[in-house]
């Protein structure tokens, strides 16, 4: 492996940023796989990118707007039909502690 260079990805830390739990087994496994993958993608560092405009999306469409006109919303029943848990017309979640 050609590591050293990339001081790297800390899988456990990043998983927390993504609000996703990982098991110890997963952390260990992903750490070595992602070290390898991150090492590979660092290849783009070889390109001379000075002065190149970034493209965050495809071909340049601009000013694509919608008129401020009402459209049908979902019926309340339909909106709640997929809710894992409902409480009096609200989407129920564990207590939010700010």
């Amino acid at each position: 492996m050609s590591e050293e260079k990339h001081n790297g990805i800390d899988v456990a830390y990043v998983a927390n940023l993504a609000r996703m739990s990982l098991t110890e087994y997963e952390i260990e496994k992903f750490q070595s796989q992602l070290d390898q993958i991150v090492g590979y993608v660092e290849k783009i560092g070889e390109l001379d990118l000075d002065g190149v405009e970034p493209s965050s999306r495809m071909r340049s469409l601009n000013n694509v707007y919608r008129k401020d006109e009402l459209r049908d919303s979902l019926s309340h029943d339909k909106a709640m039909a997929n809710a894992p848990e409902e409480l009096n017309g609200l989407f129920k979640v564990p207590k939010i502690v700010e």
Binding site: M20, E42, P54, S55
Partner: peptide, 24 residues
């Protein structure tokens, strides 16, 4: 995890930022 990492503070320019330019 890879995607979160390449956008995270301190790594954005090296990865996502550069990849956007490479795409160009």
């Amino acid at each position: 995890i890879l995607g979160t990492y390449v956008l995270s503070s301190g790594y954005y320019d090296a990865y996502y930022g550069s990849a956007q330019k490479a795409r160009t």
